[in-house]
Design a protein around this nucleic acid. Structure first.
Lengths: 178, 178
DNA sequence: CTGGGTTATGCAACTAGTTGCACACTGGTG
DNA sequence: CACCAGTGTGCAACTAGTTGCATAACCCAG
């Protein structure tokens, strides 16, 4: 399971509550490893049980109390173990690909509209990623920022590939309506 | 759920048993939508219950009996419904990205080896896909073959992007050992 | 002072996917 | 003839992820 390790990486960078982690996942790590707050709360509890993190209740005024988690030494050992351990190369699992394979049975205009929707979504994400790159990684960066930048580069390349693929599909489906 | 619909697309192209479907998933659709035989058998049962497919027991000599499934009219209606229905754009969920984000805590040579492993795996898949493209889609193709080709094109673009990303990561991590 | 938005945590029930194993039959190899 | 590989179906138990809901405190706007 990698969600636990994604949380370890994030908490190792900075302590945080479940809620804060959920927001970080929405904004940065979640671009490459999505998780809902439900998953995060549940996983944090398990991680406390495993001794990888500890949670401290923090009272806040003008806000509900929160529980801030930090990584223990055991957790850092586990993180290092996992980082050194080989994992499966990812592969894309794309519903749109299945739909294109079924294009014979589809209503062509509707399918074209669907491909266009996906193209727009990927193009939008690409714009977001490029904006983040310009804002946070404009100069030469080193260390942690560099690693974050490399991950973002992966997202940029993936979204670019998807946009180009959608364009290829649109061109092909339009010129060959059969 | 799209596994059901991936099965509908595959069975609509050609009737087959659970075992045959599992092999097709290993070889073509599974490049873009992986499924184990367990998942397929279980899903086929559910699909029979929903009336989307029917199974006929076929005795074979020199082989165990099998149950060959085919799509019903209800199944084709459902397939058409699903094809017209908007779905979520895919995004990559890559363990390697999480590991790179945690590079600070990692043993650098081990992480480099891991990135190289992933690069090799993606390059290998790319070779496989390009070989399939040359073998099956060399000339101009139309209709169903064209749709299959377009899906394969997606796989080629994705693997290319991943190989290039791994190279970028390797270069960056090597020149900046901090 | 009511209603909507944000922060904050959580349960329950569900769907999806993985892993390990079992059974059965056949053909080929040593 | 014993064993392995391939074909074929399946159960049971597990892990992972989703969805809907509940609760509770605060802030601000109308």
């Amino acid at each position: 399971m990698a969600l636990e390790h994604a949380i370890l990486v994030s908490l190792d960078e900075r302590d945080g509550s479940g809620y804060e982690l959920a927001r970080r996942f929405e904004r940065s790590i979640g671009f490459f490893w999505a998780a809902t707050h439900q998953q995060i709360y549940r996983t944090l509890k398990r991680m406390v049980g495993e001794g990888w993190v500890v949670g401290v209740d923090v009272a806040q005024d003008s806000r509900p109390d929160k529980r801030v988690y930090s990584v223990t030494n055991t957790g850092r050992v586990e993180l290092r173990r996992w980082l050194a351990q080989p994992g499966e190369p990812s592969f894309l699992r794309d519903e749109l690909a299945v739909k294109i394979r079924g294009a014979e049975r589809a209503d062509l205009p509707a399918l074209l509209a669907e491909v266009e929707r996906h193209r727009a979504a990927h193009a939008e994400r690409l714009v977001v990623y490029l904006a983040i790159e310009e804002r946070d990684f404009a100069g030469e960066v080193r260390g942690r920022a560099r690693h974050q930048h490399l991950v973002l580069r992966g997202g940029i390349r993936a979204e670019q590939a998807l946009v180009e693929w959608c364009d290829e599909v649109l061109t092909a489906l339009r010129e060959d309506p059969k």
